[in-house]
């Protein structure tokens, strides 16, 4: 997934659509998907406009996912599309994965007492044959482009070839698959 993060206005449509689609519990902060807000610097009226930024974020679906590596029961796995998934039947809530994730993308689902996280709507939208995630489809300024990185002709592959981008905590070697477009 590529994120045109400069277009984000922190309206939280993505968060709402995710909760409605995936049934995430209310009353939970930063579950599954969130917008990271860097608060403004400076004193009124000389505020540093550029210091206030919005970073929409969710599970990075790392190619080399630390959460998958530490899971003792193989509850966390890569599915056939390379999406990092959790099999709730196998999860024993040891929470190793939550500690291992450098992006704090995992949470405990109080209904099932297992760990959950973003799965790119694999079991809700994609399984129905839809090609967008809930967060992408609903976005006002169209921040997200979701697609197949293995297909060189896909829109996301083209965008990543043409536009500068960065990933978060690249130095950890997790090979995250959320790409922030500059």
């Amino acid at each position: 997934m590529a994120l045109d993060y400069k277009s984000c206005i922190n309206c939280k449509a993505c968060e709402t659509a995710c909760k409605e689609e995936n049934g995430v519990l209310l009353g939970a902060d930063k579950h599954r998907i969130w917008v990271g807000v860097k608060e403004i610097e400076g004193e009124f009226p000389l505020l540093n406009i550029a210091s206030n930024t919005f970073y929409p974020s969710q599970c990075q679906h790392c190619d080399n996912a630390p959460c998958q590596e530490v899971c003792p029961t193989q509850a966390t796995y890569y599915d056939e599309n390379g999406v990092v998934r959790v099999d709730s039947d196998k999860c024993i809530l040891c929470s190793y994965c939550m500690n291992a994730c450098p992006y704090d993308a995992r949470y405990v689902d109080d209904r099932t007492d297992t760990v959950d996280k973003c799965n790119f709507c694999s079991d809700t939208r994609l399984v129905r044959g839809e090609v967008t995630t809930a967060c992408q489809a609903t976005c006002l300024t169209k921040v997200r482009i979701f697609g197949d990185l293995d297909d060189p002709e896909s829109e996301i592959s083209k965008v990543l070839r043409e536009r500068e981008h960065f990933t978060l905590k690249t130095h950890l070697g997790t090979k995250p698959k959320l790409f922030y477009l500059i």
């Binding site: 309206c11 939280k12 968060e15 709402t16 659509a17 489809a137 609903t138 169209k142």
Partner: peptide
């Protein structure tokens, strides 16, 4: 082609 947080919360 968009629905804001309030639109999503119509349910």
């Amino acid at each position: 082609n968009m629905l804001c947080p309030r639109g999503n919360a119509g349910i």
